[in-house]
């Protein structure tokens, strides 16, 4: 076998993707705000907590509650956009096929991924 699809059950996958997305959004917002002078220390000061707690929340080594997420958004002057959408009906999903060369010296494609919207 030349390829291996690493996957977990849909429930665990959904959680992993959601948590990772929230963390990425927080880190990206912080990176953007840091360019405008906002620091982790300043965020911690606004929230009345230690700077290390901000780091742990952003790193995922401290539990992030809805309230603490809201606090971080407030301290960074960000609005939170949250939606729950139904997956698209089967058969109507936009299908993507990507073929990527593995190296400059290889002529055969080495990854073929088909991405389908919704749970699978």
């Amino acid at each position: 076998m030349t390829s291996f699809l690493f996957r977990l059950d849909p429930r665990k996958t959904k959680a992993a993707q959601f948590v990772a997305k929230v963390r990425r959004e927080l880190q990206q917002a912080l990176a953007e705000e840091e360019k405008h002078g906002l620091t982790k220390s300043r965020i911690a000061e606004k929230l009345g907590i230690h700077r290390s707690a901000i780091t742990r929340r952003l790193q995922g080594t401290e539990n992030l509650t809805l309230h603490s997420l809201s606090d971080l958004a407030w301290a960074m002057n960000r609005d939170i956009v949250f939606r729950l959408e139904r997956p698209m009906p089967k058969g109507n999903e936009p299908a993507w096929t990507a073929v990527v060369d593995g190296s400059r010296t290889d002529t055969q494609p080495v990854i073929r991924s088909v991405l389908l919207m919704g749970e699978g």
Partner: peptide, 19 residues
């Protein structure tokens, strides 16, 4: 072996992983 994961809708592979 080429290692793949199912990416979210609309996200295309950008980096390659072998194992």
């Amino acid at each position: 072996v080429a290692i793949n994961v199912e990416l979210p809708a609309g996200i295309l592979p950008h980096r390659l992983l072998y194992g």
